[in-house]
Amino acid sequence: MQETISIKISNPDHEKAASILEELSKNLYIRFGSDGKNSFQDWQNENAKYVFVIAEINTEIVGCGAIRPVNEHTGEVKRMYSKYRGKKIGQTLLAFLEDNARTIGYTNLVLETRVKNESAIQFYQKQEYNIIPNYGKYRDRPEAICLGKSLN
């Protein structure tokens, strides 16, 4: 039986959100030696171009994700995390974020992950994200790989 995943817009500083973000950071640190927190420091809760969401099954927080602006038409996917594999949590989160991105007015989404994070790269490619040239602070970072998707 497929469990129902509910996605809710939240504040990353909220207690429930903070716990799943901390779990994500620990997971990244164990796998890649960096927790990724420094790429999520400039969050603006009051800005409508920023969206942070949590995923719940029953009352358990099972994932999170975010979008923030790169420029007027491009949003960046950040802090994507699914606690369990095979439950379509990541797909549900990303579809929700993409719908919100369109509503906000973004026409493109981009993201960065580690080259070593093969499961994430495969996940995004299955969701129709393509490898793009590294952008912004990732430009000269050989350990980084960037992907993007047109929302048109």
Rank of each mutant, 00 (worst) to 15 (best):
I7R: 13
I9H: 13
I9F: 09
S10L: 08
S10H: 12
P12L: 14
D13S: 13
H14P: 02
K16D: 15
A17E: 02
A18F: 10
A18M: 10
A18T: 09
I20D: 03
E22Q: 01
S25V: 04
K26S: 15
I30H: 05
R31Y: 05
F32A: 11
G33Y: 15
G33S: 06
S34F: 12
D35V: 09
D35G: 09
D35S: 04
K37W: 08
N38K: 15
S39D: 13
F40S: 05
F40Q: 03
Q44W: 00
K49Q: 06
K49A: 01
V51H: 02
V53W: 00
I54N: 12
A55N: 01
A55P: 00
I57A: 00
I57H: 05
E60A: 07
I61A: 05
I61H: 02
V62W: 01
G63S: 05
G63M: 04
G65C: 03
G65P: 11
I67C: 10
V70I: 12
E72W: 08
H73R: 08
E76R: 01
E76W: 01
E76N: 03
V77S: 10
K78C: 15
M80G: 14
Y84K: 11
R85F: 15
R85W: 13
K87M: 14
I89K: 01
G90Y: 06
T92C: 10
T92M: 06
L93M: 06
L93T: 07
L94F: 07
F96Y: 15
L97F: 01
N100R: 07
R102G: 10
L109D: 13
L109T: 05
V110Q: 15
V110H: 14
E112A: 13
E112Y: 10
T113C: 14
V115P: 10
Q122K: 10
Q125L: 05
E128C: 02
Y129G: 02
N130H: 09
I132H: 03
I132L: 01
P133H: 01
N134S: 05
Y135N: 01
K137N: 09
R139F: 03
D140P: 00
R141N: 04
P142S: 08
P142A: 04
E143H: 12
A144T: 09
I145A: 05
L147V: 12
L147P: 13
L147A: 09
G148S: 09
K149S: 13
S150G: 14
L151R: 14
